[in-house]
Design a protein around this nucleic acid. Structure first.
Lengths: 108, 108
DNA sequence: ACAGGTACCTTGCATAAGCAGGTAGCTTGT
DNA sequence: ACAAGCTACCTGCTTATGCAAGGTACCTGT
């Protein structure tokens, strides 16, 4: 209840976070999840439905790669559509947080 | 659908925005709404259920003041609880946006 | 064998909260 | 009268997506 604000914020920003990670290069689900668990407190299991959605929306493409340290990894990479959606969301994020920060800044 | 990200972000941050406005001094609903409509694209009608929630939660107190330019205004002011909730949400906001911005910053 | 870490995935749940559009009353200007 | 702006408020709608918990399976170290 007390952290519902953070849950709400994540709902708006988690896509953006995943896209941001992938914009640095292809990566696999568990690693993406691990980063976002550390960075923004996302739950680990959250990544898989999210990635499936993105794949259905054509934002990412996948390939399987054998791993020497466990099961095969499913690597995701941004499609051109994913790249442009990332940039659009990024602009939205920046203008929105900019507006809120402005509100917060001019305090007595 | 395309702006759902902004709607989600607002859901997490609108309380904070209202608290931020009130932290500068008491204000009435229509004026708060006007500011936030301009600042973050909130819908005008959104303010009233929001203020009612905050009142029920003990974050704000109200008083009615006659206006010479229309109906009486209902002024809201932060309670001590509202003030501390504001500060807590503000910290949450800053740490969360800081984390996302860090993710966004180190790009090639 | 077993434990622990890596890695993928599923199911069920719980949760509202903002938005659009409309109502109504007051005041001022034409 | 009428319009326009101020001010408060309400109803109905719509919509996901994040989380917790659990499952499966592979690999390594002891």
């Amino acid at each position: 209840m007390a952290d519902s604000i953070l849950v709400q914020l994540r709902k708006g920003a988690l896509d953006l976070c995943v896209l941001a990670v992938l914009s640095k290069g292809e990566n696999y689900g568990y690693e993406i999840a691990s980063r976002l668990v550390a960075a923004v407190g996302m739950g680990e299991g959250t990544i898989y439905p999210l990635m499936r959605r993105m794949q259905n929306d054509g934002l990412v493409a996948t390939r399987l790669v054998e791993s020497s340290s466990g099961p095969p990894r499913k690597y995701y990479r941004l499609t051109p559509l994913g790249q442009s959606v990332f940039e659009a969301h990024r602009r939205d994020w920046q203008s929105f947080t900019g507006a809120v920060d402005t509100l917060l800044e001019d305090l007595p």
